[in-house]
Computed example of a mutant assay.
Amino acid sequence: MDGDTNKKEFNKWLQNRKLGKLFVCIECVYAVILLLTLLFNFPLFTHLVIFQGIFVLVYLLIGLFFGKKTAKITNKNRETI
């Protein structure tokens, strides 16, 4: 049973790591787009920054109103060698 749990945790960690790499690649592309628009098309850059601020504000408001009211921090007890 313990080996099965470790395998599930490892698979979940691996999946999260793959998603993290994907998001880093997307963020790098967005940063390059911001840099190029800053250098060559400043009005478009300002629009991108404003829309980014609006999206972050909406995300924070959604988390504020629809987030869990009682967040708990849980600690798994792990056996060490």
Rank of each mutant, 00 (worst) to 15 (best):
W13S: 13
F23V: 14
L34Y: 09
G63H: 14
L61W: 11
V32M: 04
K7N: 13
N6S: 01
K8H: 02
L14H: 02
L60T: 02
Y30W: 05
K68V: 04
I50P: 00
L64V: 02
E79W: 00
L22S: 15
E27D: 05
L39A: 11
K69I: 12
E9V: 00
L64C: 05
K18L: 08
F10P: 01
L44I: 10
D4L: 07
F66N: 01
K21I: 13
V32D: 10
H47G: 01
T46E: 00
R78G: 01
Y30H: 07
F10A: 01
R17T: 11
G67Y: 12
I33A: 13
L14Q: 00
L19H: 07
C25N: 14
T74V: 13
L22T: 11
N41Q: 05
N77S: 03
V32T: 09
Q52C: 12
N11A: 06
K76A: 11
H47L: 04
Y59D: 08
V32K: 10
F10M: 03
P43M: 06
F40L: 07
I81E: 07
F65N: 04
G53E: 06
L36H: 11
G20I: 15
L19K: 09
F65D: 02
V56P: 03
N11H: 06
K72N: 03
V58F: 15
F66Y: 11
R78M: 00
Y30T: 09
N75H: 01
R17P: 07
K72P: 00
K72L: 08
N75S: 10
K7T: 14
L48C: 04
K8T: 10
N41H: 06
K7A: 11
Q52E: 04
F45T: 02
V29F: 03
L22Y: 15
G53M: 09
F42V: 06
L35P: 02
C25S: 12
F65A: 03
G3W: 07
L38A: 10
G3L: 04
L39R: 05
L61F: 06
G53I: 08
L61D: 03
F45C: 12
K76S: 11
N75I: 05
L19A: 09
G67V: 13
G63S: 03
H47N: 02
H47F: 00
V56F: 14
V56T: 11
L36N: 10
N16S: 00
L35C: 09
Q15A: 07
V49G: 15
P43C: 04
L39Y: 08
G53N: 06
N11L: 13
L14R: 04
A31N: 14
A71S: 13
I73E: 15
K18M: 15
N77K: 08
E27Y: 09
T70D: 11
M1K: 04
